[in-house]
């Protein structure tokens, strides 16, 4: 067993353990942290597959940005998850049946000849001067330009939808309007009232 295979086994075992942890732990913060661990281990497995760019992107984007944001949300919302777990034992038999069927199908499928080692041989490792990032960029901005642009439009729709669904103009909200604050003159703030004197004390 060479060193690469050894590393693969270690990290994939940790990955599976972390993935099981995500769905079994009761604490949502712990679940999120398990997910971070799972992402990190997948990143290392991708690194072993010589997909350096994707591997580092996975760590930067998912671990660095998405999961941190997710942790913030979980911590700030303080969701009580116990009602979500109700009926677990009631749905267990049906769920187990469906999962069992899917597992049997997948085992049957993965043993099929369409995914055999002859059809998908181990790829030849690239030389040290092979530039992963450049190749990805070339593919994305030439062959897959159309799909890339459509994905951008989908993000635009997501932004429009998120803003349209959450922005409310409530009359009781107090806004600061810096432009008006700067333009204020002393007449707006200070009123000089000339009053007749009451004639003083008699």
């Amino acid at each position: 067993m060479d060193f690469k295979l050894f590393v693969f086994w270690i990290f994939s075992l940790v990955l599976i353990g972390a993935a099981v942890g995500v769905i079994t732990t009761r604490n949502p913060v712990q679940a999120a942290l398990f997910l971070v661990l799972a992402f990190f281990n997948s990143a290392i497995i991708w690194m072993l597959l010589e997909a350096e760019f994707l591997s580092i992107t996975l760590v930067l984007v998912y671990v660095g940005a998405v999961m941190v944001l997710f942790l913030f949300v979980v911590m700030m919302l303080d969701i009580n998850l116990s009602p979500l777990r109700e009926g677990f034992s009631r749905y267990l038999p049906l769920g187990a049946l469906i999962v069992g069927a899917i597992v049997v199908q997948m085992v049957f499928l993965l043993r099929a000849k369409s995914f055999s080692a002859e059809k998908f041989p181990v790829p030849v490792p690239r030389g040290a001067d092979y530039n992963n990032t450049r190749e990805l960029g070339m593919a994305m901005y030439t062959d897959y330009l159309f799909q890339f642009e459509v994905a951008a439009v989908i993000l635009l729709v997501a932004i429009i939808a998120a803003i349209a669904l959450t922005m409310r103009r409530r009359p009781d909200t107090k806004y600061q309007r810096p432009s008006e604050q700067v333009q204020v003159t002393k007449e707006d703030r200070l009123r000089i009232v000339s009053m007749d004197s009451e004639g003083g004390a008699k």
Binding site: Q147, V150, A151, V153, I154, V157, A158, I160, A161, A164, L165
Partner: peptide, 13 residues
């Protein structure tokens, strides 16, 4: 698939 998602996301919103 991307076209379908573009349609579906607009419809959900």
């Amino acid at each position: 698939y991307l076209g379908l998602e573009l349609l579906s996301l607009s419809l959900y919103a």
